[in-house]
Design a protein around this nucleic acid. Structure first.
Length: 300
DNA sequence: CGGAGTGTTAGTCG
DNA sequence: CCGACTAACACTCC
């Protein structure tokens, strides 16, 4: 899935076109997408009915983000919680050309010309266009909640750490959280439990920027090293958002254009290639089940 | 054609 | 409670 910068980029693009839009009709083509967020999802038809009926007539008033989730807030207070996981995609197609088409998340070629298509699982017909939830691997979900508070009560954000741009996220906070953890630093970042938003790409990029091996055990990191990791997160995340998020060349920006951040990748996807800094061959290993690329010279 | 690999994370197991 | 592993699924690339 898109990581935090890609999700935030999509949120910003969608915000420009669907705030104030009224929902005219909703169609759920795959019950499990709206049934729950678990891995083993039992299609729940009651949820589908709720999803298709309760939304009609409501206006979208706000789009927010928490970690890699997008929350669509409606005028009744009801909320939709969208998680794109690995291959989810949101597309807004306007009724007329006074508005821009918005396409973000996983690239699905068919969605650029044909909507709905075989990967479309939810359609919201709006008074100014249509919004589509598409998902190739169907890991993602869109959940209906009666209120924002209901999302919190459900514990959905319960295990999340701080947003990287939250002012409470400080070098001291990070150091405090890491000092007793007996797990590789990348594994900890991927868990989202201390700071949210870093996925496989940005973990590797942050570690390279900081000069720290992703395999380093958290409890062996010095104060200075922790500070470097912190500064790398604070540098890379906003820069990636500024570049439209898009982490890999064919990730799509909110407006459907290709992202720019990939050009800044130092290690992700570069296993066996030469380090831009020292020219040595980049190594790779597996951490938390994920391919991990690093430079054994530049990172200690 | 077979097998490996893919941007996530919930659930399970030790 | 922690940490490690796997499953959910479709598709692409060797």
């Amino acid at each position: 899935m898109p990581e935090l910068p890609e999700v935030e980029s999509l949120r910003r693009s969608l915000e420009k076109v669907i705030i104030g839009s009224q929902i005219v009709r909703v169609t759920v083509k795959h019950p499990k997408i709206v049934s729950s967020s678990g891995t083993t999802r039992v299609p729940n038809l009651a949820k589908v009915v709720e999803f298709e009926t309760d939304l009609v007539g409501q206006k979208i008033i706000r789009l927010t983000r928490r970690a890699k989730n997008i929350i669509i807030e409606l005028d009744s207070g009801n909320c939709l919680l969208v998680h794109l996981k690995m291959t989810g995609q949101l597309v807004f197609e306007p009724l007329d050309n006074s508005l821009q088409k918005v396409l973000g998340g996983h690239p699905i070629e068919e969605s650029e010309s044909s909507l709905p298509n075989k990967h479309t699982y939810i359609i919201w017909e709006l008074d100014n266009g249509a919004l589509f939830y598409n998902d190739v691997r169907q890991f993602g979900y869109v959940l209906f909640y009666s209120s924002y508070q209901a999302i919190l009560d459900d514990g959905h954000f319960g295990t999340f750490g701080l947003e990287p741009m939250d002012e409470q996220f400080t070098a001291d906070f990070l150091a405090q959280k890491l000092k007793d953890k007996k797990t590789p630093i990348k594994t900890l970042f991927l868990a989202q439990s201390v700071v949210v938003g870093l996925g496989n790409i940005y973990c590797d990029e942050v570690c390279f920027e900081a000069g720290i091996l992703p395999t380093r055990m958290c409890n062996t990191l010095t104060k200075k090293e922790t500070k470097k990791l912190y500064e790398s997160i604070k540098k890379i995340i906003p820069k990636a958002i500024g570049e439209g998020g898009s982490s890999i060349a064919n990730y799509l920006l909110g407006d459907g254009s290709r992202g720019n951040y990939a050009r800044y990748h130092n290690v992700y996807g570069r296993k066996g290639k030469k380090c831009f800094e020292c020219n040595s061959v980049l190594m790779s290993t597996v951490l938390a089940g994920r391919t991990t690329v690093y430079c054994e010279i530049c990172q200690k």
